[in-house]
């Protein structure tokens, strides 16, 4: 293959990467999602742009998840402590957790943070 062909190939690839990067960083508003896990297994992905209510069962136990105005919260739970219900509506940040019912709700937009202590 001629050198010119290689140059064109690499240049094209670099341009595609640049365009994709621009789309990623400056593109239109991306949808926000929440991933719902029970006992470590992914149960479903929830689109936060649509107001809705979900009942997540774990054996005899349950949590009610409510999506409202682009955010999600646990609005009812069969657990004793109700710590999960006390957490405000969220669309980012640390996962919402109900330890007794083994429920975890994490957000697609985790930013560049690897973990949160506290």
């Amino acid at each position: 293959m001629k050198t010119r062909t290689w140059v064109m190939l690499v240049s094209s690839f670099a341009i595609i990467c640049a365009v994709l990067s621009c789309l990623f960083f400056f593109g239109g508003e991306s949808k926000q999602y929440a991933e719902v896990y029970t006992d470590g297994k992914r149960l479903q992905t929830i689109d936060l742009s649509e107001d809705c209510e979900y009942r997540i069962a774990y054996g005899e136990e349950y949590n009610i998840l409510t999506v409202q105005d682009g955010k999600i919260a646990v609005t009812a739970s069969s657990c004793a402590t109700k710590d999960c219900v006390h957490r405000d509506y969220s669309d980012h940040g640390a996962p919402i957790v109900c330890i007794p019912n083994r429920l975890l709700i994490s957000f697609s937009d985790g930013g560049d943070m690897d973990a949160l202590v506290g």
Binding site: D88, A94, D112, M113, D114, A115, V117, G118
Partner: peptide
């Protein structure tokens, strides 16, 4: 680098510092 947030005591689901 590892990026570890320190929870905001007022809103613990969010970081106050990194």
């Amino acid at each position: 680098a590892w990026v570890i947030g320190i929870a905001n005591p007022e809103t613990p689901s969010e970081a106050i510092a990194t």
